[in-house]
Amino acid sequence: MQTVDSRAPQAGPSEQPVAESRLGFPAEVKLAFTIAFDHRRAYVLAVAGAVAMFALLVWTGGFLQFYPQTGWEFDASLSERLSVGVVAVLFGALLPLELTALSKARGAAGAAGAGGVLGPVFGILSMSCCAPLLAPALLSFVGFSGTTLLRVNVALYELATPLTLASVGLLLLSVGLVSHTIAAACMLPDAGAKKESR
Protein backbone atom coordinates (compact mmCIF):
# COMPACT_ATOMS: atom_id res chain seq x y z
CA MET A 1 0.00 0.00 0.00
CA GLN A 2 1.24 3.36 -0.88
CA THR A 3 0.61 6.39 1.18
CA VAL A 4 0.93 9.90 0.08
CA ASP A 5 2.01 12.45 2.57
CA SER A 6 0.51 15.73 1.56
CA ARG A 7 3.30 17.53 3.40
CA ALA A 8 5.93 15.83 1.29
CA PRO A 9 7.12 17.78 -1.75
CA GLN A 10 5.38 16.65 -4.95
CA ALA A 11 8.30 17.67 -7.05
CA GLY A 12 11.93 18.43 -6.58
CA PRO A 13 13.20 21.95 -6.16
CA SER A 14 13.95 22.08 -9.86
CA GLU A 15 10.26 21.80 -10.71
CA GLN A 16 9.02 24.84 -8.86
CA PRO A 17 6.68 26.95 -10.91
CA VAL A 18 8.47 29.54 -12.97
CA ALA A 19 8.70 33.05 -11.63
CA GLU A 20 6.12 34.49 -14.03
CA SER A 21 3.36 32.83 -12.06
CA ARG A 22 4.83 33.78 -8.69
CA LEU A 23 5.23 37.43 -9.47
CA GLY A 24 2.29 39.71 -8.98
CA PHE A 25 1.42 42.37 -11.50
CA PRO A 26 3.16 45.26 -9.68
CA ALA A 27 6.31 43.15 -9.29
CA GLU A 28 6.24 42.27 -12.99
CA VAL A 29 5.99 45.92 -13.95
CA LYS A 30 8.77 46.85 -11.54
CA LEU A 31 10.99 44.07 -12.86
CA ALA A 32 10.26 45.03 -16.47
CA PHE A 33 11.12 48.69 -15.82
CA THR A 34 14.31 47.67 -14.01
CA ILE A 35 15.40 45.56 -16.97
CA ALA A 36 14.28 47.99 -19.67
CA PHE A 37 15.92 51.00 -18.02
CA ASP A 38 19.16 49.23 -17.22
CA HIS A 39 21.07 51.26 -19.79
CA ARG A 40 21.41 55.00 -20.20
CA ARG A 41 20.24 54.75 -23.82
CA ALA A 42 16.84 53.59 -22.55
CA TYR A 43 16.41 56.92 -20.77
CA VAL A 44 17.50 58.76 -23.90
CA LEU A 45 14.98 56.76 -25.94
CA ALA A 46 12.22 57.37 -23.41
CA VAL A 47 12.84 61.13 -23.31
CA ALA A 48 13.11 61.31 -27.12
CA GLY A 49 9.90 59.30 -27.51
CA ALA A 50 8.03 61.43 -24.99
CA VAL A 51 9.23 64.67 -26.61
CA ALA A 52 8.32 63.38 -30.08
CA MET A 53 4.86 62.32 -28.95
CA PHE A 54 4.38 65.64 -27.13
CA ALA A 55 5.33 67.51 -30.31
CA LEU A 56 3.03 65.34 -32.44
CA LEU A 57 0.07 65.84 -30.10
CA VAL A 58 0.67 69.59 -29.87
CA TRP A 59 0.92 69.86 -33.64
CA THR A 60 -2.11 67.71 -34.45
CA GLY A 61 -4.13 69.35 -31.70
CA GLY A 62 -3.31 72.80 -33.08
CA PHE A 63 -2.29 74.03 -29.64
CA LEU A 64 0.73 76.00 -30.76
CA GLN A 65 -0.41 79.25 -32.35
CA PHE A 66 1.43 82.24 -33.70
CA TYR A 67 -0.14 85.68 -33.52
CA PRO A 68 1.57 88.67 -35.12
CA GLN A 69 0.95 90.88 -32.11
CA THR A 70 1.75 88.55 -29.23
CA GLY A 71 3.94 85.84 -30.83
CA TRP A 72 3.80 82.11 -30.08
CA GLU A 73 1.21 80.82 -27.64
CA PHE A 74 0.31 77.41 -26.25
CA ASP A 75 -3.50 77.56 -26.34
CA ALA A 76 -4.85 74.50 -24.53
CA SER A 77 -7.22 73.88 -21.65
CA LEU A 78 -6.03 72.26 -18.41
CA SER A 79 -7.49 68.87 -19.36
CA GLU A 80 -5.86 69.06 -22.80
CA ARG A 81 -2.48 69.91 -21.22
CA LEU A 82 -2.85 66.98 -18.82
CA SER A 83 -3.84 64.62 -21.65
CA VAL A 84 -0.87 65.63 -23.77
CA GLY A 85 1.52 65.28 -20.83
CA VAL A 86 0.25 61.91 -19.59
CA VAL A 87 0.06 60.34 -23.06
CA ALA A 88 3.55 61.63 -23.96
CA VAL A 89 5.10 60.33 -20.71
CA LEU A 90 3.40 56.91 -21.02
CA PHE A 91 4.46 56.62 -24.64
CA GLY A 92 8.05 57.53 -23.69
CA ALA A 93 8.04 54.87 -20.96
CA LEU A 94 6.53 52.29 -23.31
CA LEU A 95 9.22 52.59 -26.00
CA PRO A 96 12.15 51.05 -24.03
CA LEU A 97 9.77 48.42 -22.66
CA GLU A 98 8.67 47.44 -26.17
CA LEU A 99 12.27 47.26 -27.38
CA THR A 100 13.28 45.16 -24.39
CA ALA A 101 10.30 42.88 -24.90
CA LEU A 102 11.24 42.40 -28.54
CA SER A 103 14.83 41.51 -27.77
CA LYS A 104 14.11 39.38 -24.69
CA ALA A 105 11.17 37.52 -26.15
CA ARG A 106 12.91 36.78 -29.43
CA GLY A 107 14.45 33.63 -28.03
CA ALA A 108 11.40 32.68 -26.08
CA ALA A 109 8.63 32.82 -28.60
CA GLY A 110 5.35 31.76 -27.20
CA ALA A 111 6.41 32.12 -23.63
CA ALA A 112 5.02 35.60 -23.47
CA GLY A 113 1.59 34.37 -24.45
CA ALA A 114 -0.99 36.83 -25.67
CA GLY A 115 0.73 39.65 -23.84
CA GLY A 116 3.65 39.53 -26.24
CA VAL A 117 1.42 40.34 -29.16
CA LEU A 118 -1.24 42.39 -27.48
CA GLY A 119 1.13 44.79 -25.73
CA PRO A 120 2.28 46.56 -28.88
CA VAL A 121 -1.20 46.20 -30.40
CA PHE A 122 -2.81 48.04 -27.50
CA GLY A 123 -0.04 50.62 -27.60
CA ILE A 124 -0.76 51.33 -31.25
CA LEU A 125 -4.53 51.21 -30.68
CA SER A 126 -4.31 53.78 -27.93
CA MET A 127 -2.49 56.13 -30.26
CA SER A 128 -4.51 55.57 -33.41
CA CYS A 129 -8.02 54.93 -32.20
CA CYS A 130 -8.58 56.64 -28.94
CA ALA A 131 -6.31 59.65 -28.78
CA PRO A 132 -8.76 62.41 -29.75
CA LEU A 133 -5.91 64.77 -30.46
CA LEU A 134 -4.44 62.46 -33.08
CA ALA A 135 -7.65 61.29 -34.71
CA PRO A 136 -8.25 64.40 -36.89
CA ALA A 137 -4.70 64.29 -38.26
CA LEU A 138 -4.98 60.57 -38.97
CA LEU A 139 -8.36 61.00 -40.67
CA SER A 140 -6.95 63.86 -42.73
CA PHE A 141 -4.05 61.60 -43.67
CA VAL A 142 -6.39 58.90 -44.99
CA GLY A 143 -8.41 61.32 -47.07
CA PHE A 144 -11.04 62.94 -44.84
CA SER A 145 -11.20 66.66 -45.39
CA GLY A 146 -13.04 69.92 -44.86
CA THR A 147 -16.64 69.55 -43.74
CA THR A 148 -16.35 65.84 -42.89
CA LEU A 149 -13.41 66.56 -40.65
CA LEU A 150 -15.28 69.46 -39.06
CA ARG A 151 -18.16 67.15 -38.08
CA VAL A 152 -15.66 64.63 -36.72
CA ASN A 153 -13.94 67.38 -34.73
CA VAL A 154 -17.24 68.47 -33.19
CA ALA A 155 -18.06 64.86 -32.22
CA LEU A 156 -14.54 64.30 -30.91
CA TYR A 157 -14.69 67.42 -28.78
CA GLU A 158 -17.78 66.08 -27.03
CA LEU A 159 -16.14 62.67 -26.56
CA ALA A 160 -12.72 64.06 -25.66
CA THR A 161 -12.79 62.96 -22.02
CA PRO A 162 -13.83 59.29 -22.49
CA LEU A 163 -11.54 58.96 -25.53
CA THR A 164 -8.60 60.39 -23.61
CA LEU A 165 -9.30 58.05 -20.69
CA ALA A 166 -9.53 55.12 -23.13
CA SER A 167 -6.25 56.16 -24.70
CA VAL A 168 -4.49 56.37 -21.34
CA GLY A 169 -6.13 53.08 -20.28
CA LEU A 170 -4.90 51.28 -23.40
CA LEU A 171 -1.41 52.68 -22.90
CA LEU A 172 -1.41 51.44 -19.30
CA LEU A 173 -2.70 48.06 -20.49
CA SER A 174 0.07 48.00 -23.05
CA VAL A 175 2.66 48.73 -20.35
CA GLY A 176 1.21 45.91 -18.25
CA LEU A 177 1.18 43.38 -21.08
CA VAL A 178 4.67 44.24 -22.25
CA SER A 179 5.90 44.04 -18.65
CA HIS A 180 4.39 40.57 -18.42
CA THR A 181 6.20 39.63 -21.64
CA ILE A 182 9.55 40.83 -20.30
CA ALA A 183 9.09 39.18 -16.92
CA ALA A 184 8.06 35.87 -18.50
CA ALA A 185 10.84 35.91 -21.08
CA CYS A 186 13.48 36.63 -18.46
CA MET A 187 12.42 33.69 -16.33
CA LEU A 188 12.29 31.08 -19.07
CA PRO A 189 15.98 30.31 -19.61
CA ASP A 190 16.30 29.60 -15.91
CA ALA A 191 13.19 27.40 -15.87
CA GLY A 192 14.28 25.57 -19.01
CA ALA A 193 17.71 24.86 -17.59
CA LYS A 194 16.17 23.43 -14.48
CA LYS A 195 13.88 21.18 -16.51
CA GLU A 196 16.89 19.88 -18.42
CA SER A 197 18.66 19.05 -15.17
CA ARG A 198 15.95 16.60 -14.12
Binding site: G146, T147, T148
Partner: peptide
Protein backbone atom coordinates in the same frame (compact mmCIF):
# COMPACT_ATOMS: atom_id res chain seq x y z
CA UNK B 1 -18.83 72.29 -48.69
CA UNK B 2 -16.87 72.21 -51.93
CA UNK B 3 -15.02 75.41 -51.00
CA UNK B 4 -14.22 74.13 -47.50
CA UNK B 5 -13.04 70.76 -48.77
CA UNK B 6 -10.78 72.46 -51.30
CA UNK B 7 -9.30 75.33 -49.30
CA UNK B 8 -9.59 74.21 -45.69
CA UNK B 9 -8.85 70.47 -45.80
CA UNK B 10 -7.59 70.40 -42.21
CA UNK B 11 -10.81 72.02 -40.96
CA UNK B 12 -9.13 74.84 -39.05
Amino acid sequence: QAILDKYNPQAK
